[in-house]
Design a protein around this nucleic acid. Structure first.
Length: 420
DNA sequence: TCTGGGGTCCTAGGACCC
DNA sequence: TCTGGGGTCCTAGGACCC
């Protein structure tokens, strides 16, 4: 019984290399929105000591001085490359769970009879590399939590094939003994503090603790983790058909915003984007929440966080309804005198697009919804925004700073790579 | 000067019901 | 003086993930 976890090596940094062979051994980092902090590093950049999530301005000078290359994030491009990788995996394995933009779980149970699983992993890795240029690593083990451990072993032992399988009790226990407890999937900062206090420092010690005791002392979530570490499968490969339960659009601003006049169109932009995502999911929402907050890093200044939820009488995915709700939520939470650094909108309480539930106080025959209208808008705006709502800020996501983005090599005609 | 964005699951506690 | 108990549903907040 085997599962595999495939993860793309330094994914965003690797993407930036695909059409830039000149960057093969050059240290690369990719930055978050506003070029705020480092969200991906190539192996060379990691070796230079560039940490995950560090503010760019703190490492910028040293990194560039040593010949590093920096990119703003180009999620359109990364998303397209991710789809290509996932499509290949789905072509070879009947059950694939796309877990994140750069990771997928594979169920190999049904292949075990006819294939050598380790060899199969190596084969897939070769094909993905050849067809997309993306280097992947593969961890193979009996449970999801253990595939994460196997993958860590690829890194820790620097396994040249980048594929590692742990099956026997001996292999598993050895890998666990070499894994600090905070590297276990599902154990974050808070839990590992607690576990350390209980004299549990590595994954083997955690696995050897009675799961019932863990459930009593901690939670059912950690109990599952313990069972998974012991080889008992608690988490299945899930198909990716399960509907989303919430949609969030939020951004930090490139510059602080102190007045409602500037803030309102920004929030409207978020609302428009969120409504698009909602229609794409074929869902309707009946709750719209808006939040604004100052920067927790400028602690000498007065801080404020505002959050407000608006209930909608009838579920909707019409941008106009969501815009109205967003404005209604923003008004009471905005306070003048604060420098806001971030805002966002959250849509929740979904119902499927096709089911209709009318308000008691509304005439059910009233042709209120005009879904065709939204359909046309979506078509017009599919590749680039052509049509704006009056309350939007037409200066795209402004104010946001970003100026080191690579071309959309694979999704935009005007930015295709050119071979001379 | 400059610190990401988008999700999930679980739990405790309040509201409400009979 | 005396003031139930058990159940469900919902929400906010915490912890985690990439």
């Amino acid at each position: 019984m085997s599962l595999a976890l495939v993860d793309c090596e330094s994914f965003y940094a690797s993407c930036e290399r695909i059409f830039r062979p000149d960057l093969k051994h050059v240290p690369i980092v990719v930055l978050s929105n506003n070029d705020g902090c480092v969200i991906a590093r190539s192996t060379e950049a990691k070796q230079m000591g560039i940490g995950m999530g560090v503010p760019w301005f703190k490492v910028k000078d040293a990194f560039l001085a040593q010949g590093g290359k920096v990119f703003s994030s180009n999620f359109t491009f990364y998303g397209d490359m991710s789809n290509r990788v996932m499509n290949i995996l789905e072509g070879f394995v009947p059950k694939v769970e796309v877990y994140s933009i750069d990771e997928a779980f594979l169920e190999l149970d049904s292949l075990e009879e006819n294939y050598n699983i380790y060899g199969f992993g190596c084969h897939i890795r070769g094909l993905v590399k050849q067809w997309t240029g993306v280097p992947v690593r593969i961890g193979i083990a009996p449970t999801k939590t253990l595939t994460k451990i196997a993958l860590n072993e690829v890194k820790r032992l620097n396994i040249p094939t980048k594929v590692h399988q742990i099956t026997s009790t001996k292999e598993i226990r050895e890998a666990l003994a070499n894994t600090p407890v905070n590297d276990v999937w599902g154990v974050g900062r808070r839990l590992s503090e607690h576990l350390n206090r209980a004299k549990i420092f590595n994954a083997l010690q955690l696995a050897d603790t009675d799961p019932r005791h863990i459930k009593h002392k901690f939670s059912v979530v950690l109990e599952r983790t313990v069972r998974e570490l012991r080889g008992q499968r608690c988490l299945d490969i899930e198909n990716n058909l399960t509907a989303k339960k919430q949609i969030v659009v939020s951004r930090s601003f490139g510059a602080r915003v102190a007045d409602l006049k500037t803030l309102r169109p920004i929030v409207s932009n978020f609302a428009v984007r969120a409504a698009e995502k909602l229609r794409h999911e074929k869902q309707k929402c009946s709750q719209v929440s808006v939040f604004v907050r100052t920067s927790p890093f400028s602690d000498h200044k007065p801080q404020h966080t505002g959050y407000k939820t608006i209930e909608l009488a009838t579920p909707t995915n019409d941008t106009r309804d969501i815009l109205i709700a967003a404005k209604k939520a923003l008004l009471p939470i905005f306070r003048s005198g604060y420098d806001y650094a971030k805002a966002g909108i959250l849509l929740s309480r979904f119902t499927s697009e096709t089911s209709k539930q009318y308000s008691l106080f509304k005439d059910p025959n009233e042709p209120k919804e005009n879904s065709k209208f939204m359909e046309y808008i979506d078509q017009l705006n599919a590749y680039e925004t052509q049509v704006y709502f009056a309350s939007q800020n037409t200066k795209r996501w402004s104010p946001m700073k970003q100026n080191m983005t690579s071309p959309k090599y694979t999704t935009c005609w005007y930015e295709l790579p050119v071979a001379n």
